[in-house]
Amino acid sequence: MGLADRIKEAMGDRKPGAFAKETGVSPGAVTQWLDGSTKTLKAETAEAIEAVTGYSWRWLTTGKGQKFVELDMSTVTDPPAPKNLKRVRFFDSATVEQELIDQGPLTSEPNFVPVVGMAKLGDNGYYEEINSTPGDGDGTVEAFSEDPGAYALRVRGDSMFPAIRDGWYVVVEPHGRPTPGEYVLVKLKDGQKMVKELIMERPESITVVSVNGDTRRTILREDIDSHYGLQPVSAILPSSKWRP
Rank of each mutant, 00 (worst) to 15 (best):
S26L: 09
P27Y: 04
P27V: 05
G28F: 02
G28T: 11
V30F: 01
V30N: 00
W33I: 03
W33C: 03
W33M: 05
L34W: 02
G36Y: 11
S37G: 10
T38A: 07
T38Y: 00
T38P: 01
K39N: 01
K42Y: 10
K42P: 08
A43N: 01
T45L: 04
T45D: 04
T45S: 13
T45P: 01
A46N: 08
A46Y: 01
E47C: 06
A48F: 04
A48D: 06
I49N: 02
E50L: 00
A51W: 00
V52R: 04
V52E: 12
G54H: 03
Y55N: 02
Y55W: 09
S56A: 13
S56Q: 03
L60S: 08
L60E: 07
L60V: 07
T61N: 00
T61P: 00
T61L: 00
K64L: 04
G65D: 01
Q66E: 13
V69T: 08
L71D: 08
D72A: 07
M73E: 12
M73I: 08
M73Q: 11
T75F: 12
V76Q: 14
V76G: 03
T77Q: 14
T77C: 09
D78N: 14
P82L: 09
K83L: 15
K86T: 05
R87C: 08
V88S: 11
V88W: 04
D92Q: 10
S93K: 15
T95Y: 02
T95H: 02
V96C: 03
L100I: 03
I101D: 02
I101C: 00
Q103C: 13
Q103A: 12
G104N: 05
P105R: 13
P105G: 06
L106A: 14
L106E: 13
T107Q: 15
S108L: 09
E109S: 10
P110W: 12
N111E: 08
V113P: 05
V113I: 15
P114V: 00
V115H: 12
V115G: 07
V115W: 12
V116L: 11
G117W: 03
M118K: 15
A119K: 03
A119E: 05
A119V: 07
A119M: 09
K120Q: 12
L121C: 11
D123W: 11
D123M: 15
